[in-house]
Design a binder for these strands. Structure first.
Lengths: 329, 329
DNA sequence: GAACGGACAGCAAGGGGTTGCCATCAGGTT
DNA sequence: AACCTGATGGCAACCCCTTGCTGTCCGTTC
């Protein structure tokens, strides 16, 4: 017993297939009584429209893809969760793709999915601008943790946030901070560094950048060693994972945090609250980033013509102070 | 300029559409020279087959869905990662669905996806057996962290693992353990309890179960209070999140871990290594669970007839000892 | 040299819906 | 009574690709 089709429903209800189709896709084009009758018959038969047949003609798949630069980063869990929830609320299917920090993989996967999805949400895309523009020409795209003029995006307000970090460090007496940079092709890394440097200048601190580092805990050891060698009293790591890796290494080398060195991270992942000492970090409502990104995307894939506007949303950040930062030695 | 179709390719190459189609889907049905020519023209035009049209007829979508009971649980990240990687390796698309701990949501989402995916991987499904059997009748299904005769599954070897836990506790002099149970409809919770109880009996410990508890850190406080009231010297929590929540509460109540109470978790999530004291927990290669599950699923969705066998894979566990367990007071 | 068989390409019928256009009909106008 | 209008439902083409069947061509075989 294969799935019933509109033909079965039409036959059972004694109407034409087009009427059945319309009853589902544009209910007000069909008389209320007929419609109810069709619905009843359909429910009886257990009919469900075949999304592929529908997509074939309409070109709309009720599916969006979320591409993340590295799925192993816990920071994304929140984004994914927010996105999944929002997509589900609109009965959209969420396809998840891991770019494994490789622009190549990212691009290939996106191209593979172009025919099957209505749009893309890209998390911290490592692709060059021109690729993003090209993809945006094929399907609606919303960027997360990245901005590009002309494309909609959702980010956390990092300029502001970085300023808070530097202020926090300055008020603790630090005169010199070291930023452990993220991947070379990370927009976020560039933005953070630029914001940190500006804020540092403004507040009379010396800012230095080391890196790039792969933002994983395992790469924290090398980062920590470099930072110590550079004579850091305050380390701002590209993200919490790196910061946690740094702190581990510092403990190993018997460098006291925060007495000798202060450490700050980004993202406020679950683990930041659990490590010892607790990690001071710049957090924010990451689930909202995912949620809003999907929301904008659904707007863009909607039936109404694209408005031409590309909202660039910046959600507030919050400096979560824990024990990894303290007065400068 | 819409995407080129086989018609465009056929016209440009001077052959029939069917020949183009066959050149792609069954290359040896077409002369090598013709084929090469078609490929050249197709590449030139930037042709890519439309997966929906293909799926419409063939019924194969090159897509599998992964449904997890609660996406916010870090334990799943590994599963998801392993699954995503494996799916990508076979050029399958992975759809991610969060059941939010609700059997209702789980079932509805699955039914919604039935027409669009080739199969399901269900992580810690909360559905009753009969639902699973029914779904398995519609599409191939592979269970993770759950077993059901007749359905393929991938789990960690928990019986063995639980035995290790109890042995560990027994060797530390504990005579009484309390299991903080997971959700009522969790197969895993039932299995762990049964394994713990058996092992406890064997080793002469008294085992007691409290719960069920929602396995999140935020529910650890209540669990901790119950456990203390029951006079626990050793607590085995349903998962690491709950264990971490318990330890937080114990610290709050100035109950020393492990001096007064030992705590053990399950899953060995990233945070287990970071909390203080480090959490003793039963780990395993979770990414492999996801990987193997997808592998079995792809096997089952493959062209060859289902073999009728339903592999029940059990991957080894590993008791990771940290500082949260110690000699009984 | 006729009959035969294999390799290959094309025709056309779907697969499950959507939708532009037309036919019908009831109700309202003048 | 003739005419118009809007609401409603049906016909059939179309979306893009797959595949069973047919026809052609050419090399074999007896």
């Amino acid at each position: 017993m294969p799935r019933p089709t509109i033909y079965d429903v039409a036959a059972a209800a004694g109407v034409a297939t087009s009427t059945v189709s319309r009853a589902f896709s544009s209910p007000n084009r069909v008389n209320a009584r007929t419609r109810e009758h069709i619905f009843a018959v359909a429910a009886d038969l257990g009919y469900r429209p075949n999304p592929h047949a529908r997509a074939l003609l309409s070109g709309r798949h009720h599916t969006v893809a979320m591409v993340v630069s590295d799925i192993t980063n816990p920071h994304y869990f929140e984004l994914i969760r927010g996105a999944e929830l929002r997509a589900k609320a609109s009965e959209y299917t969420l396809v998840l793709v891991n770019a494994e920090e490789s622009p190549r993989v990212e691009y290939d996967q996106i191209q593979r999915l172009v025919p099957s999805v209505d749009g893309f949400v890209l998390g911290a895309s490592r692709l060059p601008d021109e690729n993003l523009v090209q993809i945006a020409g094929q399907r609606p795209v919303v960027l997360m943790s990245r901005e590009l003029p002309g494309l909609p995006s959702v980010v956390l307000e990092h300029t502001q946030g970085c300023h808070q970090i530097v202020e926090h460090l300055a008020s603790l007496g630090h005169r010199h901070l070291i930023y452990l940079a993220g991947p070379r092709n990370s927009w976020m890394a560039a933005t953070r560094w630029s914001a940190l440097r500006t804020a540092a200048e403004e507040l009379g601190l010396r800012a230095e950048r080391i890196g790039p580092f792969t933002p994983k805990a395992s790469h924290g050891a090398a980062a920590a060693d470099s930072a110590i060698r550079a004579g850091a009293t305050a380390i701002v790591a590209h993200n919490d994972l790196l910061a946690i890796g740094v702190m581990r290494r510092l403990k190993q080398r018997s460098v006291q945090v925060p007495q000798e060195v202060s450490v700050v991270g980004f993202d406020n992942i679950f683990a930041a609250d659990l490590c010892t000492p607790g990690l001071t970090t710049l957090g924010g409502a990451h689930a909202d980033v995912g949620r809003v990104a999907i929301e904008i995307l659904l707007q863009a894939t909607g039936p109404q013509q694209p408005t031409g506007t590309s909202p660039q949303v910046a959600l507030p950040t919050e400096l979560v102070m824990r024990e990894s930062t303290g007065p400068c030695a």
